[in-house]
Amino acid sequence: MSVLWEGLLQGLKAVWTVARVVIPLMIALEIAQANGLLQRLNRILARPFQKIGLSEEGAFPVVVAMVFGLTFGSGVIINHVREGKVTEREVKIMGSFIAIAHALIEDTIIFLTLGAPLLVLLVPRLAAAYGVAYLLHKFGTRLPLPQGDSFHSLD
């Protein structure tokens, strides 16, 4: 019983950590969007992402995930889905990309401090994420992909 209790506390701690970042992040996003900043930023970021089938709106959650981590990127995706900003196809591409390449700063620093070389930490991961996203973009409609949750569980 005490183990479950500890788990619950750990979970609530994680929720608090997320809330502390996600709520200010969403406020900042809202202000940036209302002032047209996001659109400008997206246009710069979007170029390398066009090749893997992501629109300006779709590139943004990927960048958030790469900098802040999977949970925060997923938060932005969930919000984008709710507001109808991205297509189902894009969600699949974004979801797969960030599943492989996320929290690039935090994850990389953990192993750099232990002496692992930077090349090993970043290059294979980014290459694989981009490759998988590219394959999904090119052949995604022809693959019998099982559904994720996003479009059904959020109603």
Binding site: L70, T71, G73, S74, I77, I78, V81, E88, V91, K92, M94, G95, S96, I98, A99, I100, A128, V132, L145, P146, Q147, G148, D149, S150, F151, S153
Partner: peptide, 16 residues
């Protein structure tokens, strides 16, 4: 979390 954000559990597990 990945499943919630549009990924398919099985494929993402296998790829990773």
């Amino acid at each position: 979390i990945s499943k919630k954000a549009g990924g398919s559990l099985r494929y993402i597990f296998l790829i990773r």
